[in-house]
């Protein structure tokens, strides 16, 4: 936790930018550099930044996300993505695409690799954040 006003302000400004960028990386990842892992790390970066600026306690209160449980949900999503290929296709992790049309956005492609990436994104984001926040809490306890 820091008292620096400048750093706190910057963290606040950067947080939405980092989260948007991480989502951008996640969606772009299928054919270009990016994907769930990198996206998750960048997303975790935003939470680390907030933890450094405001302290783990406050971030936990504001976000109200149980990181450990969300990690398991992410794992469930990733497994589901693999099982879809097994059920309707020839092999575990087989890739499938569906094109859907959403009013106002246009046609988008939904695929099992994307679902898998979303699962990985959730796992990486949650694991990294929960490790860093635990460490921050430990550090704060020692400071006092």
């Amino acid at each position: 936790m820091t008292q620096s006003l400048f750093f706190r302000f910057l963290a606040r400004v950067m947080m939405p930018v980092l989260i948007l960028f991480s989502l951008f990386l996640l969606l772009r990842g299928h054919n270009e550099p990016g994907g769930g892992f990198v996206g998750g790390l960048v997303g975790a970066g935003s939470i680390v930044l907030m933890t450094l600026a405001y302290g783990a306690e406050e971030v936990r209160q504001r976000l109200r996300i149980d990181f450990l449980r969300t990690m398991y949900y992410g794992l469930a999503v990733a497994i589901l993505a693999g099982v879809i290929g097994l059920v309707i296709g020839v092999a575990f992790q087989d890739a499938y695409w569906w094109t859907t049309f959403i009013q106002g956005i246009g046609s988008i492609e939904v695929s099992t690799p994307l679902l898998f990436d979303i699962g990985v994104y959730m796992v990486v984001l949650c694991v990294t954040s929960s490790i860093v926040m635990n460490m921050a809490e430990e550090g704060e306890r020692e400071d006092h």
């Binding site: 449980r69 398991y72 794992l75 469930a76 497994i79 575990f92």
Partner: peptide, 13 residues
């Protein structure tokens, strides 16, 4: 034998 242990991991929920 890979999916079943993965589901066992999920029982943490």
């Amino acid at each position: 034998p890979l999916i079943i242990p993965l589901l066992m991991v999920l029982t943490a929920l």
